[in-house]
């Protein structure tokens, strides 16, 4: 490759990077600009903390913020152990054919559209939750987060596996040579060394759980209330945008969804920052202990 063509390629990559970064900033600017009437005069805090009652002139999104947090966090609580266990099975415990088959299945799962999960949720999970717990309609925080856990798990599993596989074999061999078991090898070498990969996987999965619309829209029930228990119907910020988006453009309801957009944006940004810091704190492989 000549120096000239190399420069062209370099420019192209730079352009790609610039465009994607610019779009992100641009979207934030767009949201803030349209939400401006709501943010001026300290009303932003009011919107974040008050209830949604359009007929009484209150356009707060507090119930939706709580709903989003509850559903996505609970989903992570279900998904993390599940994914960790599955990844350990694939990359550590079994390295034969079984592991390959499971891996293929997980890879296939990443491509399933969320609407399919939504349907499965409506016809299988919701009646199950309703009958087992005998609480309400079955459209609730618990159902949505169980389904979301299934949605985000494949991504986490594959990331976990990749980061386990990236740990140099020689490290593991050293443990075995010292008489350590496979489990000790995993707990004391593989796991600490793959810490950054695990954090990235969790960030991505949490981002997906927070940002997913359809599952919560179809399964969580969408009631505008602060959920008091996991069996209560709840609405996420994303479902709220989807539900209110259809309202008249000129109405205050419509304008309030820009506040939802900004909150979602800030929420994921803060999340990513916190997790980045956490990775920094823990240091890199080789410096552990």
């Amino acid at each position: 490759m000549t120096a000239g063509s190399e420069r062209v390629v370099e420019r192209l990559f730079f352009a790609a990077a610039f465009v994607s970064a610019f779009v992100t900033v641009f979207i934030f600017g767009f949201l803030v600009y349209y939400g401006l009437p709501l943010f001026s005069g300290g009303r932003f805090i009011e919107i974040l903390s008050s209830p949604w009652a359009p007929h009484q002139g209150s356009f707060g999104i507090y119930p939706m913020i709580v709903g989003t947090l509850a559903i996505s966090m609970l989903a992570m609580v279900f998904a993390f152990p599940l994914s960790m266990g599955c990844a350990i099975l694939i990359s550590v415990v079994s390295r034969g054919r079984l592991s390959k088959v499971i891996r293929k299945v997980v890879e296939a799962m990443t491509g399933i559209p969320t609407v399919v999960y939504g349907f499965v949720g409506i016809f299988l999970l919701i009646p199950l939750v309703r009958n087992v717990f005998d609480a309400g309609s079955g459209m609730c925080v618990l159902s949505a987060s169980l389904m979301l856990a299934v949605l985000v798990s494949p991504t986490m599993i594959l990331f976990f596996c990749d980061s386990f596989d990236r740990v140099p074999r020689s490290y593991g061999h050293a443990v075995l040579a010292l008489g350590g078991t496979r489990i000790q090898q995993f707990l004391h070498v593989t796991l600490p060394c793959s810490w950054p990969g695990i954090v990235v996987a969790v960030t991505l999965a949490l981002g997906r759980a927070v940002g997913d619309t359809l599952i919560a829209l179809m399964i969580a029930g969408n009631a505008v209330q602060v959920p008091g228990s996991v069996f209560d119907s709840a609405r996420t910020l994303t479902s709220h945008i989807a539900l209110v988006f259809a309202a008249d453009n000129e109405s205050l309801e419509f304008k309030a969804i820009f506040a939802c957009g900004v909150s979602l944006y800030l929420f994921t940004t803060i999340l990513v920052l916190i997790i980045r810091l956490a990775v920094h704190e823990r240091g890199k492989c080789g410096q552990v202990r």
Partner: peptide, 20 residues
């Protein structure tokens, strides 16, 4: 009431009621 579930279409409403 605030605890009412929301369906997004006539079809979705029918599906929800027929299940519950």
């Amino acid at each position: 009431a605030a605890n009412a579930n929301f369906s997004v279409s006539n079809g979705a409403m029918k599906a929800a009621i027929s299940q519950d």
